[in-house]
Structures are given as C-alpha cells and as structure tokens.
Design a binder for these strands. Structure first.
Lengths: 342, 342
DNA sequence: GTGAAAGCGCTAACAG
DNA sequence: CTGTTAGCGCTTTCAC
C-alpha cells in the first residue's frame, strides 16, 4: 500500500485538501469534483493511512478492552455487547489479553497500555487491578473497570451486586424450606467470592440460621466435586448447596449423583453466573445470572461519557443480578429440624 | 498526554535526535547522556506517540486476529497461543470480532481491515471467508486463515485434517466392535462438517459398512438431543454415535439417558473438539481433539514468515487431530449383526 | 557521538 | 468552493 492522498489528488486533478474533504465527507465539495476524487480513490484502491490520521487528529477512534479469561459466557456476552455498542457510536474495539503472569516485570506487556493506541480502555475483571489502575492513571488513559476487586474504588467501575446475588440465591433455597444449606465459595481472593459468601451468611442469619457447611474453595468443576465428595464421605450432607459458580455447581451435582443422591429430589443445588452450558445440563441448573449485557452497555456509556466530558469521570455503578430458577432446586423434603447435624 | 519528545529533549539538555536514539536503544549514545535522557523521560512521565512512530516507520508492530465466536475452548486456546507467540516475537496482538451479520453492506466493519492498523492479520474460522480474503488481498494486508472453508485455497491457510478426524473417530468405534454407527453432523455449510462426515463414511466403507443413521444437523446441545430423541422414538437406536462436535455429543448423551439408555454401556458416543467441559462431564467424553496450540503457533509463524519474506506466501498446512479416549465409548455388546436394522 | 534538516500522510487553519 | 501553508511527533539520512 504505497498509494497516498497525493496520488489520489494527482489522478483526480484535485488538490490533496479536496481529497481530504471527500474522505471526511465535508459538505463543501462540488459534486462533480467529489465524483472525480471518488473515482480516483477506487481506481487507485486507496485507503487513508490511519497512523497519519491519528497523529494529526490526536485520537485513534479505538477503544481497548482487556480480558483475562476467554471461554466464559459472562465475559463473552460483555465483549459482544461492548463491540456492538462501540460500533454504534463510531468506535472500533480492540481486545487484548491481559497477561497476569509477569507480575514481576514492571512493564505492562499490554499494547493497549504501552502507548497511546486507544482513546480509552475498558478493563474487564482484572486480578491485579491496582497495578493496572495505577498505570492507566499515570498515563492519563481514560478507563472503566468492569467487575472490579476494590471496595469503594475511586475510579469508574461497573459492578454486579454480588452480595445481593448470594443473598438471593440463599433466599431461594430458604423459601423452598431448606435449613441445612451449605456454600462452596470461589477463591476468597476475589471480592465477588467474599460478597456472595457474605450475602449467603446474612440471608441465613435473617432466618436465625447458620451455614450448615462452608468451604472456601476455588472456581471449577473439580473443586465442587471434591468438596462435595468430602462432605458426603464425612457423613455431612446438606439438603441444599449454594455453589460459588456454575462450574462448582456442576461438580457438586456430579459428586452427589456419583454417591446415589438425586438432584434436586435429595439435594438442591444452585449455581452462579448462568453459563451457556448451565441451561443444557441435566438437571438444568438453577443459578444467578449476571446482567452481562447491561454491564457491557454501561461500561461503554460510562467510558464515552468520560471521553466526551459530559459526566464526572467518577461513576461506581452496581447492577443487580437475577435469579434463574430451573430444575436443580426443589422444595426440601428432608431433615427440617433447624441446624441439627444428623 | 501532551509531553512529547521535544519536552524531553529540552529537559534533558539533549537534542530530540539523541532522545530518539535512547528510545530505540541505539548503541551510539554516551552513557551519561543516556541517563540524562532516561531521567527526563521518567520525570516527565513520557512515552512516545505510537501514531507518529507508526507513520514514520511504516509498520505498526501489531498483528490482528479476527474472531467470530468466543466461548469456545479450541478458539480460546488458539487465541492464547497466538498472543504468547506474538509477544515472544515482539508483536502485539489486537483481537477483533468479525461481524458476520452485515453481509449486505459492502464495507467491512472491522477496524483491522478498514485501515492499515496492523502489519498482518490472522483470520480465525470465518464464515464468509471469500469476502474477507478478497478484501484483504485487495488492500494488500498480509494474512493467514486458520480453519478455512475453501478446499485448495490459493492463500495461506492452517487447517486441521477433519477428514482424518472423522475417520479416526469412526475407526475407534469400529475397533470397539460397533457396526451400527450413526453420525450427526454440524452444518454442512462448513467444510469441516462435510469432511468429518466423509471420513466417517469412508471408514465405514472400508469395513464394508454403511452408516446406520446419518443426520445433517447443526452444532449445539439441543440439536444432538433432538436428533437422538427422534431416532429413539422411531425405534432406531445405534450402538454408537459419532457426533459432529462435543455439544451435539452432550445432547445425544442426554437424550439417551433420558430414555433409559446408559452411556457407554448401551450406546457409545464420541464427540469432536475436546472442549474444556468435555472432560468434566459425566461420563467424561471421548472425543477428537483439535491441535489448537499447533494451529496458533503455525498461524503466527506462517504470518511472520510472510512479513519477513523468508518464505513464499503460500502455505497450506494441514495438522492432525488426536483421538482422546475417555469414558463415553466402550466395547459393543449389542446387536452385532452387520447392518441389520432391528 | 551528536544535531540539523527532511519528511512519513494527513488535517486544520487561513486565504483566495 | 478550493488550494496554500503549517504542522501532528517521531525517525532517518547526513553532516559535523
């Protein structure tokens, strides 16, 4: 691609300024000349150099989105939403993987951070949040963090009320008459895990109950399986389990079934996230759905607002999760004497 | 970020040229001066403007990767591999979602395509392949297509031998003594679906068998469930099923179990792709694994070779899939009389 | 070793 | 309506 605006100007007989005007849809170009330019552009197969444009305009038209994990339904949906909304607003989306591994080296390996390649960045659920926020602030790059780890963050964030999610999940179980309710949390390193757990405990407390069992584990099918397996072996089987995410829930279901328990007849299980697969599982998983579309939309709007200076660059949004009742939870039939460990 | 190379020059007492040299690690800078510049850079919190660099250097240092679907283990792994390999070679990765929806409008909405924002592009499993290839070629952007749809493509491609995969899957079933083998394919629109099916039929033919049942369906749990359900209702139950992908396989397993059949005791099921979840399912799914890491690596190497002109820009690589035997397939116990439909 | 000068391709004033 | 004149911030000859 060596053909530049000058070539087009020559070919069309116009000046480069006129070509530039046509390129930018300026209304002040005579239709005949406009056509001449357009023809030349097509003939020459010309397309403007974006680096030059960016340089002179001072903005890239690109919004960056950093991601840590792929293959997750929630993130997946957020990414797609962000992509669409950005497009509607004339921005392009560049996704980049945040490499959490090289915590030692101080230079962020991410190209979005490294230079001024974007007009703004949406940081999706980073683990080393502080580090990125600090870097972004130092470089003066406008950003929004989605699913952040810091309570009372002093930078713009979009979050889900995980406390509420944990509370609602537990409440659902409570309403079904369960009293022997266990919880398996994801890594407590994550604020979201701690909040869900807190919601769980508080919901129980409001009914004068305490957790039947409580395990601080990690996200994943294996973890759920392992914990449930251990509980069963130790003779402690709750009538209901609130799993920190759908993967844990799946593991719990499998451990239960492997030991002759039926879900939800014998034990109810509720997950968290509403992954695609959760609806396809057998039994279809009751779960707490994250408002992924909303998260994506608000992230985009918040960032664009910052870029356009229409709002204070300090928004901390907290969205509400939603209980999705499917087949893995049912009315409690078993031991209903409160908190007795039998 | 208004501080530029000029500010650094002034602050450090050097010329902008020297600053530039330091920036580019030129060896011809006196150590003392180098330090002065470095200090000024740090104090001013300066970082070079990438647009300006790109403009003058004629290259961006960015490789684009277009993706159509997220949330797929195979793609996920490819993306991660590409990211890492690129990084090792001094390139940054920008991922972008290919919007297949706007087939009517002729302008590709993808920012990677639209302007010269990347040095090269890796196109991952596009549906409207021809369209993108044409555009890329017209714009003169170096590219590689991974998992392409065209047979005998005249552009660089990295593929998996889907015929072989279908053949191996079927062969595995054959070796277990199955003769009543069914296949549920994904959309025949995809070359991969057709090739897997062809491998299936040929493997059968070599044993003098024909498909017990054959359904051209679509990828997804529901499809698999539906097809299997229909077969069961019509009284035609194969002893083994080769599913077009793991999702279909999961649906098949569910339909089977819902109707009192056990997997693999009564019916063997083999999937395709080896999604993360497949290993966590119950029964753990026997499947054909795509060599995702290899695909990613070869894609990067092929593209870098093109960029460095070390190889002809025409490579059509065909990688081999791998049979992963787990729990969902077993020796055939049932009807072993060849092809009799009972 | 270092700096002055000349662009990279484009857009934004300003004239005409 | 159109063209001339300046840069945007950086790298790259080419002198010194």
């Amino acid at each position: 691609m060596k053909v530049n605006i000058f070539d087009v100007a020559k070919k069309s007989g116009m000046s480069i300024v006129t070509v530039s005007r046509v390129l930018n849809n300026a209304p002040t170009v005579r239709e005949i000349n406009r056509q001449k330019v357009l023809d030349a552009i097509k003939e020459l197969n010309y397309s403007p150099n974006s680096a030059a444009r960016t340089l002179v305009r001072g903005k890239t038209g690109i919004i960056g989105l950093t991601v840590t994990a792929l293959g997750d339904s929630v993130f997946d949906c957020i990414v797609k939403t962000v992509h669409d909304r950005l497009k509607q607003n004339g921005y392009f989306l560049a996704i980049s993987i945040l490499d959490e591994s090289n915590g030692d080296t101080e230079e962020a390996s991410n190209f979005l951070f490294q230079e001024d390649r974007v007009d703004g960045i949406i940081v999706l659920s980073p683990v080393q949040e502080d580090r990125y926020v600090a870097e972004l602030e130092r470089k003066g790059i406008p950003f929004v963090v989605v699913d952040n780890q810091t309570e009372n963050a002093d930078f713009p964030t979009i979050n889900v009320d995980n406390y509420k999610g944990g509370y609602e999940a537990t409440n659902h179980l409570l309403e079904l008459g369960h009293t022997h309710i266990a919880h398996i949390s994801g890594q407590v390193l994550f604020l979201s895990s701690r909040e869900r757990q807190k919601g769980f405990i508080d919901a129980l407390a409001e009914e004068g109950l305490t957790p039947y069992l409580l395990a601080n584990s990690r996200f994943g099918v294996r973890s759920g399986f392992q914990v449930m397996q251990d509980w069963i072996r130790s003779g402690q089987v709750p009538t209901a389990v609130f799993a920190g995410d759908d993967a844990i829930a799946l593991g719990v279901v499998q451990a239960l079934e492997a030991n002759g328990y039926r879900v939800p007849e014998d034990v109810s299980v509720i997950g968290y996230d509403d992954q695609y697969i959760s609806e396809e599982l057998n039994p279809r998983l009751t779960t707490i759905r994250q408002p992924a579309v909303q998260m994506g939309e608000h992230a985009v709007f918040a960032l664009l607002d910052i870029l356009n200076h229409v709002k204070p660059s300090q928004t901390n949004l907290r969205l509400q999760p939603q209980l999705i009742v499917r087949e893995s939870t049912a009315v409690c039939k078993g031991k209903n004497d409160r908190n007795r460990r039998d």
